[in-house]
């Protein structure tokens, strides 16, 4: 198993090795020790490898991930799994701001809490947060799902497009053009599948409320100017 101790090996070597994985390569389990808050750890992966990071990471861990499964045994700094395309990123601890920002696919699971702007501009990613999320989460969310088992902060889903939000706890306030919506059978089914994928047990989909776009700001109308 390739092993990288970031207290001894430069970050460049880790990322270079991850980018150099040939199709059909045997070494598919990477372990990273002593990340000590390093930025850009395991970014730009393109192969279905498993990367286990033993410790907390700085900014943009797992950025633009495709296909890899990356697990952080610690907390993650801002922008974890930003613009992820596919694959899975799991943060055992908490995540800072902009977790999963602009993500286009794959699954991001945060076992702790996520700070503000979780899922900002999300474009297809699925995000499951076991704890709470901060303010302005899913701002301008275009597509994908954000599932929160705890509470959401202020201005959830501000200027939301078509991302779907499910919150089990309280929502401090909704952002412009975000409204509570009916949970129909298809939403229960989608949510149940996401909870299962994220390893959440003992929680019923009936405990969640769904939020989505009121679609009132989709085309400019001067009489809505107060909302901007």
């Amino acid at each position: 198993m390739p092993y990288f101790d970031l207290s001894e090996t430069p970050l460049r070597e880790l990322n270079r090795a991850l980018h150099a994985i040939a199709p059909g390569a045997n070494d598919r389990e990477f372990e990273v020790a002593n990340p000590r808050g390093s930025h850009a750890v395991a970014v730009g992966c393109q192969a279905p490898v498993a990367v286990t990071i033993k410790g907390s990471v700085g900014y943009y861990c797992a950025g633009m991930n495709s296909a890899a499964t990356i697990t952080v045994h610690g907390s993650a700094g801002p922008g974890v799994a930003e613009n992820m395309m596919s694959g899975t990123v799991i943060v055992e601890g908490d995540a800072s701001q902009y977790a999963g920002a602009t993500g286009r696919g794959g699954l991001l699971v945060i076992k702790g809490n996520a700070a503000s702007r979780c899922g900002i501009s999300m474009k297809g990613i699925d995000i499951v947060v076991h704890g709470d999320i901060g303010h302005m989460s899913a701002f301008m969310g275009q597509s994908g799902h954000l599932v929160v088992l705890g509470n959401a902060g202020d201005a959830l889903g501000d200027s939301l497009y078509e991302a779907k939000l499910f919150v089990r706890g309280t929502v401090k306030s909704l952002g412009a053009d975000c409204v509570e919506k009916e949970m129909r059978p298809e939403h229960h089914a989608v949510l149940a599948a996401l909870l299962e994928k994220a390893g959440v047990t003992g929680v019923e989909t009936t405990e969640f409320k769904r939020y989505g776009s009121a679609r009132k700001l989709y085309n400019f109308n001067i009489d809505n100017a107060d909302a901007y």
Partner: peptide, 18 residues
Amino acid sequence: PDWTGPDDLEIKILELRE
């Protein structure tokens, strides 16, 4: 969406370079 000032931008550039 994922950085605010020049200090963050420096880290963003590091990510893009990596």
